[in-house]
Amino acid sequence: MSPELAAPRRRRSLSVHIVGQNAGLLLVFAMLAAAVALYCLFYWMQQRSFPGNFELTSTVDNTMPLAMAAIGQTIVVLTRGLDLSVGGIIDLTNALAAVHMQDSLGSMLGWTVLVLLAGAALGFLNGLLVGVGRLQPIVVTLATLSIFQGLAIRVLPQPGGAIPPGYTALLVNMNQPWALLYLVLCAGLWLAFRRSAIGVAIIAVGNDEAAARANGINVVRSRVIAYTLSGVFAAAAGLFLAATATAGDATSGNGFTLSSIVAVVLGGVNLFGGRGSAIGAMAGGFVTTMIVNILFFSRIDPLYQSFYEGLFLIIAVVVGGGIGRMLRRRR
């Protein structure tokens, strides 16, 4: 850890320094490029044509919930925490939206705000327990995961409810990849957040809690805000999930706890805190979707899907970690 903290005496090559600092981000985009190229290759071998607008749109629409969840997870992981309740928050917010949203502009806007607030409240609870209660994030969010999942089934016992078509068109237009705009918006928000006081505080807490406290950062407040933001983004994921499915399912969010961690890891965010970018995590989410697409087109038995995903995760972490370390050492 310490070599990174020591200021470079001789600024022999700034470019190597920048590459070393952003190794995770560069790697995930390299992975994404490789995955897209491989996907195009397999697609061409099967269809004798290249994927077009339809494939792009469906890939983006299918990845939106994961990309949102990954942003939230990133913010928590930056504080050296982990939010396992992401899946539960997605379940609950997804169910709330599907049960209550009506086909009118007022209802759609109102419930969007309410659902995001609900996500904030759930995340705030996690934040209080971790920050003020000084409990371990893994067990706290494992417990709240169970609670949120229970509440979600209480809200929507059977898959059902309905999302107005207008809302689906607004969030995930099925014809054009308009959802990319939300990603650009989130990337912009992230860049601003990273430079804001609270963003810096969150990263500082993850890097070295004692040093952050000594420098006057309110550690508890930073933690609470990080978990609250994670709740908000998980709620956004729930909304996107409901919009793509056009209905609700109180268990459809369960898988996102693990896949958001996978996206964050692929995105080069350090699980030990203080290092990483939400943009990388979003790209990591796209890599996981692309892997599923590639497996589909390469005619691999879908039963083996988890096997390849697990294998890829290990390879990505080992290779990514190795390259990152090498680059930083060479500085």
Binding site: L82, I138, L258, I261, V262, V265, L271, F272, L303, Y304, Q305, S306, F307, Y308, E309, G310, L311, L313, I314, V317, V318, G321
Partner: peptide, 16 residues
């Protein structure tokens, strides 16, 4: 590799 990541990946490998 952090324990969370490797055991998570191993769970997927065993599932597949």
């Amino acid at each position: 590799v952090p324990a969370v990541v490797i055991t998570l990946a191993m769970n997927g490998i065993m599932e597949g």
